[in-house]
């Protein structure tokens, strides 16, 4: 069993209206050092497969097929045994 941790974030060159609005709110609340806010999704999946490589490949495929929008989002996949 492997735990696959996936982070899906807006691509760097894409506008992130939510991140921008939250940054503004943090500045208003006095967090004056807030340079940038980007808001993405954190997805944890448990996979019953044999190897770490297999789990990783499956995580990447899941991102490509469903979890991430390739036009607007980028993703990272991390795997650890569990």
């Amino acid at each position: 069993m492997f735990k696959v941790t996936i982070n899906v974030d807006p691509k760097k060159d894409i506008l992130d209206p939510q991140g921008k609005t939250v940054q503004h709110a943090l500045l208003n609340l006095g967090f004056l050092h807030t340079e940038q806010v980007r808001i993405g999704k954190h997805i944890v999946i448990q996979l019953q497969v044999d190897s770490k490589e297999e789990a990783h490949a499956m995580g990447v495929k899941m991102c490509q097929d469903l979890l991430a929008n390739p036009l607007t989002e980028e993703y990272s996949v991390e795997v650890e045994p569990c």
Binding site: P17, Q18, T21, V22, A25, N28, L29, I39
Partner: peptide
């Protein structure tokens, strides 16, 4: 309010 970004009402409540 604030586009409902983060959670609806969260930013406005501050």
């Amino acid at each position: 309010s604030y586009g409902d970004y983060l959670r609806p009402g969260a930013i406005a409540s501050h």
